[in-house]
Simulated scan of single mutants.
Amino acid sequence: MRRLPELRRVGYLWSLAHWAPLVLIALAAMFDVLTPGQQRYDRFLAAAPALAAATWSVRGIAGIGALTMATEVVLSLDRDADFVTATGTALLVIVTVTAAACYASHVRQSRERDLAELRAVADVAQSVLLRPLPPALGGVELNLLYDGAAAQARIGGDFYEALRTPFGVRLIVGDVQGKGLPAVEVASVLLGTFREAAYEAPDLAALVDRLETGMVRYSEQVPSSDAAERFATAVLVEIPPDGRTAGVLNCGHPAPLLLRGREVVTVEPSTDALPLNLRALLNDHHPVDTVPFGPGDRLVIFTDGVSEARDRAGSFYPLADRVRGWTGSGSARLLELLAADLREYGSGAADDVAVLIAGRPGPEALSTAAP
């Protein structure tokens, strides 16, 4: 969501830095020729190879160094300077700066290759941990918005999944307490357990029990991990293949929004439940709420990166009010509007953002799909 403008800005800055050495050579030569008297601008030429170290290859820097030296020689001949004393010293400085810049470029390129490999590993990890969702699953349309808080983040503490099971389509959207790799670790445990238990657990309450058990077992198997001390809020949804209802189980997570035509309803849990991995503290029971969910209805499930986004005055993002103005838009378009509005509203990236919209096709879509 925030990456596209940032990438454009980075591309502009890279282009500016890339051509800066050549621009510097041209400007230094022009001012040196046009300025009368003892003013000398050829002293700035030595900075050209140093600037090239930021973006140019070793060969490119060597070429810029050679061009800089040739320019220095031409300028010295134009002013009839002593080649040995004045020009010789200037050329020695340029050679020294060029050699240092070539070494700096070699180190930079080596680190860029290492970083590219790490990003490739992160992309593979994301494809396994946070897999792309299909546009439709078991008669349920799915649309997703996911964005990490950090500009280069591939995976954050927010997680999601959608599976077609014998009980219908089952969804989970959650947010792990904390950030960084420890939060990703807990998210991977919960997602792994969900992907296995979603096909077997008879209901959402039993599925939450399996998630709790998975966290306990992982903490016992990896005692060095701090997973036992972390918790995660989550919303689990079960959409049966036949029927006009959906089951919702909320584990301390922001309440989803139900869109029915132009109406926007907050799906508050009937009973407050603790987040995942805290149930043992109170031996809490997670209730399952049943909500109407017929053709054309949509559930908007989101993390607190949306609901707790603040503007510069410190006011929370009014998600329900914003969505009321977008109910006439399709789910994909709604997420585009939400992403753009969050960029304008927020004062900066504070948390990961995940929004999943699950909807039954409307009556017109059902009639079109019928034989």
Rank of each mutant, 00 (worst) to 15 (best):
Arg2Met: 08
Arg3Asp: 10
Leu4Glu: 12
Arg8Asp: 14
Arg9Ser: 10
Val10Pro: 00
Val10His: 11
Tyr12Phe: 14
Tyr12Glu: 15
Ala20Asn: 03
Pro21Ile: 06
Leu22Lys: 04
Val23Cys: 12
Leu24Asp: 04
Leu24Gln: 07
Gly37Lys: 05
Asp42Ala: 12
Asp42Arg: 11
Ala53Gly: 07
Val58Leu: 07
Ile61Ala: 07
Leu67Ser: 14
Leu67Asp: 11
Leu75Gln: 05
Leu77Tyr: 12
Asp80Gln: 14
Asp82Thr: 14
Phe83Gly: 06
Thr85Gln: 13
Thr85Phe: 12
Arg108Leu: 07
Gln109Arg: 11
Ser110Ile: 06
Arg111Tyr: 14
Asp114Ala: 14
Ala122Gly: 04
Ala122Cys: 05
Asp123Phe: 12
Leu130Lys: 01
Pro132Arg: 10
Leu133Glu: 02
Gly138Cys: 04
Val140Glu: 02
Glu141Lys: 10
Glu141Tyr: 03
Asn143Ala: 14
Leu145Thr: 05
Leu145Gly: 03
Gly148Ser: 13
Ala149Phe: 07
Ala162Tyr: 10
Gly168Arg: 05
Gly168His: 06
Val173Ser: 00
Val173Pro: 00
Gln177Tyr: 08
Ala183Ile: 09
Val189Asn: 01
Leu191Ala: 03
Gly192Asp: 10
Gly192Met: 08
Arg195Pro: 07
Ala198Thr: 08
Ala201Tyr: 02
Leu204Met: 09
Ala206Tyr: 00
Arg210Tyr: 07
Val216Asn: 00
Glu220Met: 13
Val222Ala: 12
Ala228Phe: 10
Glu229His: 06
Arg230Gly: 00
Ala234His: 05
Leu236Cys: 03
Leu236Glu: 01
Arg244Gly: 12
Arg244Val: 15
Thr245Asn: 08
Val248Pro: 00
Gly252Arg: 01
Gly252Ala: 09
Ala255Val: 03
Leu258Trp: 00
Arg260Gln: 15
Arg262Cys: 04
Arg262Tyr: 05
Arg262Gly: 08
Val264Met: 07
Ala273Ile: 03
Pro275Phe: 02
Leu278Ala: 07
Arg279Tyr: 03
Leu281Lys: 09
His286Asn: 10
Pro287Arg: 11
Thr290Val: 15
Thr290Ala: 11
Gly294His: 05
Gly294Gln: 04
Pro295Gly: 07
Leu299Tyr: 06
Val300Cys: 08
Gly305Met: 04
Ala313Arg: 13
Arg322Ile: 02
Val323Lys: 02
Gly325Lys: 09
Ser331Val: 04
Ala332Arg: 13
Leu338Met: 02
Gly346Asn: 10
Ala350Pro: 00
Ala350Ile: 07
Val355Arg: 02
Arg360Leu: 15
Gly362Cys: 05
Pro363Ile: 11
Ala365Tyr: 06
Ala369Ser: 14
Pro371Phe: 10
